[in-house]
Amino acid sequence: MARSKKVPGLNASSMADIAFLMLIFFLMTSTMNVDTGIMRILPPPLPEDIEVPDINKRNIMNVLISSQDRLLVNRKMGDIETLKKDVIEFMSIHPDDGNFPEVALRDVPLLGKVPTSKGIISLKNARGTSYEMYIRVQDELASAFKVLRNRLSMEHFGKKYVDLVDEEQINAIEKAIPVRVSEAEPVNIGGN
């Protein structure tokens, strides 16, 4: 029984190598890309027997993308370059102007009573519309609403909407200016 009682120290010099090996494996397999995209909420399906509510004509801005990727805004030829400006114009508050959507006072927490536009953007597309064009239009609409929200946020909080951090403030702005883009029932126009 001449063994020493001491436990020999573990040789840990290869630990770094093992860790390196695993590190390199995960480095190679990891995908760091964050998924980005445009969020939209689809409307619930319409029950068969319910009539489509009659929305005042002046509240609707019709945007139609033809199968040749051309734009029709309110039955007139439109242009993707000016679409953003048109949408901002349309959705801004114009009290007592018959050419623009109705204005309703809405109670929003933090903001109090704010006039909100009753306008709706109705986006329609043909079956032959290219997805790229559709996304470009969606993107223009999104940036138009962003401009409007920035404007309102500047007035009330002195900060741009995109720079807001407070959850309540963000919610308030979103409530005051909801993204009202109706992706309407598909219509068969312009062939495929």
Partner: peptide
Amino acid sequence: KQELRKIGAFKINYSTRK
């Protein structure tokens, strides 16, 4: 999209690059 509406999967995300 129509099919998703029927099923009740309303939240969608059009995946795009920045």
